[in-house]
């Protein structure tokens, strides 16, 4: 991440300490994750201890300290989706992508995550790809859904 880009975002929020979450969210948009050097630079520039920044980043699930893929697949593992066959969809996703939950494919295209509930239980089992909801999923539909986001050869 370029330091000029970070400075631009810091300036946008006027180096306000209360805006730390917004700043980190904006920073995450650039690379889809927060590298160690970025956090160190932010803590130095904003005069916030690195420990406080690190505590905050590890507290919220939306921040990632590991590189994430281009497309983020979120499978719901809430109660309603679970009884409607959520685990089967999740294991099919894991099989097809060749990764387990929390990991990123080697080509940096997909990251697989789970979520407890999205509040759209009527659509379960639910899979969300980059914010787009795919309801009534089943293991058969997984391949065609992934194809839409796969890299074109």
């Amino acid at each position: 991440m370029k330091k000029a880009d970070i400075d631009k975002i810091l300036k946008k929020y006027d180096y306000k300490k209360s805006s730390l979450i917004s700043i980190l969210q904006d920073l995450q948009v650039i690379n889809r994750w927060l590298p160690q050097e970025t956090l160190k630079y932010v803590s130095e520039k904003m005069d916030i201890s690195l420990m406080d920044v690190y505590s905050l980043v590890t507290f919220y699930k939306s921040f990632s300290l590991k590189p994430r893929g281009k497309h983020i697949i979120t499978a719901c593992s809430g109660t309603a989706c679970h009884v409607r066959g959520g685990p089967k969809v999740l294991s099919e996703l894991e099989n097809q992508l060749g990764i387990t939950v929390g990991e990123t494919t080697p080509d940096k295209n997909f990251t697989l995550e789970t979520v407890r509930c999205l509040g759209a239980c009527a659509l379960g089992p639910l899979v969300v790809v980059d914010g787009k909801y795919y309801g009534q999923m089943n293991p058969k539909k997984v391949a065609s859904t992934l194809k839409k986001y796969s890299k074109k050869k």
Binding site: M51, D52, Y54, S55, F59
Partner: peptide, 16 residues
């Protein structure tokens, strides 16, 4: 040092 993670994974450690 400070608190890292939350819930059952909460622990005390240094950054990274």
């Amino acid at each position: 040092i400070g608190f890292v993670n939350r819930g059952k994974d909460r622990k005390i450690t240094t950054p990274f």
